[in-house]
C-alpha cells in the first residue's frame, strides 16, 4: 500500500526530475551550433548575382519556406526550438561556409539537405539570403590548385580485381599532360530506382590519384549482376559538379519472379490453385452424376410401373 507520505516523496522526486530534464532541454536548445573551422571557412566559387539570387529565391520557397517563412517577415512556423528568420542578425552572422554546413548537415528538426540540394543550389540559396543583408560583401573562393581548371578533372571508375575493390582514378589536365590529383575526397554511389545509395564511406585519393572503395558483397544488381555506379567529389564547391557513371558487373545477380506468378486463391482464373480446381470439378461432376443417376432411376421406375399396369396389360 502506498501511504500519503510515500506519494508526497515520490511526487517531489518526479518534480525534481522534471526540473532537471527541462533545464537540460533548455541547455540543449540554447546550445551553440558549432561548425567545424574548415567548413566554416568554405566559400562559393561563383559570384552572387541577381540571377543566382532569383534562382536561390525559388529554391528557398520550395525547400525552406515551409518552416522558416519569408525572410524578414517573421512568419516562421512555431516549432520548438523556433526556426530563425533568415534575414535576422542571428542568421546573417553566420559565415558563408557555416550557412552551407548547416543547410547540408541539419540538426534536430532542421533536416539535412545534402541529398536534396546540390552544392551549387545551396550556394544559390545563400546568395538569396545574403540579399537581405546590406552590409554583406562576398569573398570568392580561390580555385582548387594553380593550373587546374574545374572542367579538366576526370574520374575513371574501374573494378580492381586483385584487391576486389572499386577503384577511382582522379586526374586533371595540367599544362597539356594528365596529372593525378591527390587528396581529393570522393563518394561512391550505386544507382537505385528512386535515388543513389552511398556505398562505403567517402575516400580520399592517394598520391597516385587513386581511391579504393569496398563494395558490399550482398548488394543486388540486375539479372546479370550489373550495377550502375556513380562517383563524385564530396566537395562539389572545390571540384565543380563533375561526376562519372559506369556499369560494373559486381552486384549479386538478382531475379525474382513476378509476385502474381504463383497459384493462389486471390490470383486470376488461370492461376487457380490445383486443389481448388480439382475440388470444384469433382464436386460439379458428382452433383451432375447424382442428378443423372436419379433421373435414370426415375425412368426405370416409370418403365416398370408401365409394365406392371394391369389396365395396359389387359389391352
Amino acid at each position: 500500500m502506498l501511504t500519503r507520505k510515500m506519494i508526497d516523496k515520490l511526487m517531489k522526486r518526479i518534480y525534481l526530475l522534471l526540473f532537471v530534464l527541462s533545464s537540460c532541454a533548455l541547455a540543449v536548445s540554447a546550445q551553440e551550433w558549432i561548425v567545424p573551422a574548415e567548413n566554416g571557412a568554405k566559400l562559393s566559387t561563383f559570384a552572387f548575382t541577381d540571377s543566382t539570387r532569383t534562382a536561390g529565391g525559388n529554391l528557398f520557397n520550395l525547400n525552406c519556406k515551409s518552416c522558416h517563412g519569408d525572410p524578414g517577415k517573421n512568419n516562421a512556423v512555431k516549432l520548438v526550438p523556433p526556426p530563425p528568420d533568415p534575414a535576422s542578425l542571428q542568421m546573417q552572422k553566420n559565415s558563408d561556409g557555416a550557412f552551407f554546413y548547416k543547410v547540408s548537415v541539419g540538426r534536430g528538426l532542421m533536416p539535412s539537405f545534402k541529398n536534396t540540394l546540390s552544392a551549387t543550389d545551396t550556394w544559390k540559396i545563400i546568395s538569396y539570403l545574403r540579399g537581405f543583408n546590406d552590409k554583406y560583401v562576398q569573398v570568392l573562393a580561390k580555385q582548387l590548385a594553380p593550373g587546374i581548371s574545374l572542367e579538366q578533372v576526370t574520374l575513371l571508375l574501374t573494378w580492381n580485381k586483385e584487391k576486389k575493390q572499386v577503384q577511382v582514378a582522379v586526374s586533371s589536365l595540367k599544362e597539356g599532360t594528365r596529372q593525378p590529383v591527390a587528396g581529393a575526397e570522393l563518394k561512391l554511389f550505386a544507382q537505385r530506382y528512386f535515388g543513389n545509395l552511398q556505398v562505403d564511406e567517402a575516400r580520399a585519393t592517394d598520391s597516385q590519384g587513386v581511391a579504393l572503395f569496398n563494395f558490399p558483397a550482398t548488394l543486388p544488381g540486375d539479372s546479370t549482376g550489373m550495377v550502375q555506379l556513380l562517383v563524385k567529389p564530396t566537395d562539389e564547391t572545390a571540384f565543380g559538379e563533375t561526376k562519372t557513371l559506369a556499369a560494373l558487373e559486381i552486384g549479386v545477380p538478382t531475379y525474382r519472379p513476378p509476385l502474381n506468378e504463383h497459384r493462389a486463391l486471390w490470383n486470376v482464373n488461370q492461376k487457380t490453385p490445383i486443389w481448388l480446381l480439382l475440388t470444384y470439378v469433382f464436386s460439379v461432376l458428382t452433383v451432375w452424376a447424382l442428378i443423372v443417376y436419379v433421373m435414370l432411376q426415375l425412368r426405370l421406375l416409370f418403365k416398370s410401373g408401365e409394365e406392371n399396369d394391369p389396365d395396359k396389360q389387359n389391352i
Binding site: 541529398n115 536534396t116 537505385r192 530506382y193 528512386f194 535515388g195 552511398q198 548488394l219 543486388p220 538478382t254
Partner: peptide, 14 residues
C-alpha cells in the same frame, strides 16, 4: 525490395 533499397521522401537519402 529487389534492389534492397528505399529512398526517404523528405531527405532523398537512400
Amino acid at each position: 525490395e529487389n534492389q534492397d533499397s528505399v529512398t526517404n521522401g523528405t531527405t532523398k537519402e537512400t
